[in-house]
C-alpha cells in the first residue's frame, strides 16, 4: 500500500484565456500521508477551493493527475467516479449543505443509502453520541443552529467510513467558540476511525491545530 493516500502530479486548472487567464492551480505536485489532519492554508483567491474540488474529484483538471490510494481518479468514467467518490471521500462544506427535506438521521445515512448499503445503526448512533446530536436525529435541518448543522454534516461525511474527509472551510459560518469545538471533534473522530482529514482554511489558528499544513499561493503548493 502506498505511503501516500492522496497525491497530485503536475496538476493544472486554468480559467479564462489570453490576458484574462487565471491560473487557479498551476503545476502543483503534492502528497498527503495516510491518517491525521492536514490543513491547506491560503488567502482568498489562492486556489485552495479549486484544489480541494479536484482532490475530491468534483472537478476535472486541465492537466495532471490526482491519485487516491495510488489510483488515478480522473481515469474513471463519470459513473465510476461517482461510486468511487461516495466510497472513498466524505465532504464537509462551509454552508453545511444538508438536504432540507430529510431529517438528521436521513441526512447522515444518505451516502450509505445511495451506495445501496445498509447503515450500521450502532456505528451511526455512536457517532451521533460523540458529535452530540443524538437527541436531534428526527429533527429537520432548518430547526438546528449553525453549529448543530455542521455537526450533522460531519456525521454525514464520516458515516460511510471513507478513507478521506475533505472539508472546505467547515467553520466559516460558525462563531469562534463553536469553531474550535467542531475542529476538535473532527480531529478526534478521524483519529478514532483512522481516517485522513484534509481541510481547506484561510485561518492560521486552525492550521496550527493540524498535524501538517500546506500553504497554497497563486495556485502553487509549498510544503511547510
Amino acid at each position: 500500500m502506498s505511503e501516500w493516500i492522496l497525491e497530485t502530479v503536475d496538476l493544472c486548472k486554468y480559467y479564462g484565456s489570453g490576458e484574462n487567464i487565471v491560473k487557479a492551480i498551476d503545476h502543483t505536485t503534492m502528497h498527503i500521508q495516510r491518517g491525521g489532519f492536514t490543513a491547506i492554508v491560503g488567502r482568498s483567491g489562492s486556489g485552495k477551493s479549486t484544489l480541494l474540488h479536484m482532490l475530491g474529484a468534483l472537478d476535472r483538471p486541465d492537466s495532471g493527475k490526482v491519485l487516491i490510494e495510488g489510483k488515478d481518479v480522473f481515469s474513471l468514467k463519470d459513473e465510476q467516479l461517482a461510486v468511487f467518490r461516495r466510497r472513498k471521500i466524505g465532504f464537509i462544506f462551509q454552508d453545511f449543505n444538508l438536504i432540507p427535506s430529510l431529517n438528521v438521521w436521513e441526512n447522515i445515512v444518505l451516502p450509505i443509502g445511495l451506495d445501496k448499503k445498509k447503515a450500521d445503526r450502532g456505528f451511526i448512533l455512536d457517532l451521533a453520541d460523540k458529535i452530540g446530536i443524538r437527541d436531534k436525529l428526527s429533527s429537520l435541518p432548518n430547526t438546528l443552529s449553525g453549529g448543530q448543522q455542521q455537526r450533522v454534516a460531519i456525521a454525514r461525511a464520516l458515516a460511510s467510513r471513507p478513507a478521506i474527509i475533505l472539508a472546505d472551510e467547515p467553520t466559516g459560518s460558525l462563531d469562534s467558540s463553536t469553531e474550535l469545538e467542531v475542529i476538535s471533534l473532527m480531529k478526534a473522530c478521524v483519529n478514532e476511525y483512522g481516517q485522513t482529514l484534509v481541510m481547506i482554511t484561510h485561518d492560521e489558528t486552525i492550521s496550527q491545530m493540524a498535524d501538517r499544513a500546506l500553504v497554497i499561493a497563486d495556485g502553487k503548493v509549498v510544503s511547510r
Binding site: 438521521w105 450509505i112 429537520l140
Partner: peptide, 12 residues
C-alpha cells in the same frame, strides 16, 4: 414541521 419520522435506510 420541526421533526420528521423519516426512513431508517435511505434510498432513491
Amino acid at each position: 414541521q420541526e421533526k420528521r419520522k423519516g426512513h431508517r435506510e435511505m434510498s432513491l
